[in-house]
Simulated scan of single mutants.
Amino acid sequence: MPVLLLSDIHGNITALDAVLRHAQRHDYDRVVFLGDAVGYYPDGDAVIERLRALGARGVMGNHDAWLLTVEVLEGQGYVFDILRWQAERLGEENRAWLAALPWTIEEEGMLAVHGSPCDPFVYVDDLDLAREGFGCTEARWVFHGHTHLAGAFTALDGPSGPWVRYKPLPEPENVVKVGPKARAMINPGSVGQPRDGVPQAGYGIWNEEAREVRVYRVPFDLDAVAQRVREVGFPPVLYQRLYKGR
């Protein structure tokens, strides 16, 4: 059965709800979350509540890890100020769920990780880093987030190492077909803060039987998010960048 892929929600409950409404058209049977439930936008607690209600299996993102240790971190600036604000408002059950997230999920032929298969904190945003990532796992399907860029790296073994190519996924519906001898490292895009110039939430549907992943871009109420950011006094740059998809 197909799997719903969610990543980098970052406390943006408006975008997450838009994605979940859109995803109702698909007959998925489970949810895999690729990290960063919290950070940036105000509603991290509500986001985790949704993920728990979905029965999502997830991995730890860097913002998730920072929130859990923010009391001892020396980081300064609005990113850490927001995490401290969210930490004070996180319910105990939701904090426990977040704290229990592993760094990776590994199943037969599949790896889920926030960043690179080599290191969950490393951005996979060029061919060399993707080639290195493929070298750190034997999984045929790798699902990751972290960059906030919806796209797919595919690899095919060659005489001197894997041939790797990249395909951005900016359209309302994007199809990534993976041949029987190929492997793929796919980022379904950020639900809460896209950064590829498309001001729409991203999510994926993985159908292993069909050897494909479909990535969708979904409009959400940008004005509502801007109003929520203003209500809590977070920096305006957070909603200004949403309108640009940056």
Rank of each mutant, 00 (worst) to 15 (best):
M1R: 15
P2N: 11
V3Y: 04
L5Y: 08
L5A: 05
S7W: 03
D8K: 02
I9G: 00
T14F: 15
L16H: 10
D17V: 14
V19R: 03
Q24E: 15
H26M: 03
H26G: 01
D27Q: 09
D27W: 01
Y28I: 00
D29L: 06
D29V: 10
V38W: 02
Y41I: 07
Y41C: 07
P42A: 06
G44C: 04
D45G: 04
D45I: 03
A46K: 04
A46M: 03
A46S: 08
V47Q: 03
R50S: 09
L51K: 11
A53V: 13
A53F: 10
L54G: 13
G55V: 15
M60K: 12
M60I: 12
N62H: 10
N62F: 11
H63K: 08
D64T: 09
A65Q: 06
T69Y: 01
G77H: 12
G77E: 13
G77I: 11
Y78D: 14
F80V: 12
L83M: 07
W85L: 08
W85Y: 15
W85E: 08
R89M: 11
R89E: 10
R89A: 14
E92K: 13
E92W: 09
E93I: 11
A96C: 07
W97F: 12
A99E: 14
A100L: 14
E108Q: 13
M110F: 14
L111M: 05
A112P: 03
D119V: 11
P120C: 10
V124E: 01
D126N: 15
A130V: 05
E132T: 08
E132S: 09
E132W: 05
C136G: 02
E138Q: 12
E138A: 14
W141G: 05
H144Y: 13
G145C: 04
H146F: 02
T147A: 04
L149K: 06
L149T: 02
L149Y: 08
G151Y: 00
D157Y: 06
G161K: 03
G161L: 03
P162Y: 03
V164G: 00
V164D: 01
R165K: 10
Y166K: 07
P168F: 05
P168N: 06
P170W: 02
V176W: 02
V176G: 06
P188A: 02
G189C: 04
G192L: 02
R195V: 04
D196K: 03
G197P: 09
G197A: 11
G197H: 08
V198W: 02
P199F: 11
Q200K: 15
G202T: 01
Y203D: 01
I205D: 00
W206Y: 13
R211G: 06
E212S: 09
V213W: 01
V213Q: 00
V213I: 14
R214S: 09
R217A: 07
V218P: 00
V218N: 02
D223M: 02
A226W: 06
V229M: 04
E231K: 13
V232W: 09
V232N: 09
F234I: 07
P235L: 10
P236G: 12
V237M: 14
L238H: 11
L242V: 13
Y243N: 11
Y243I: 12
G245F: 04
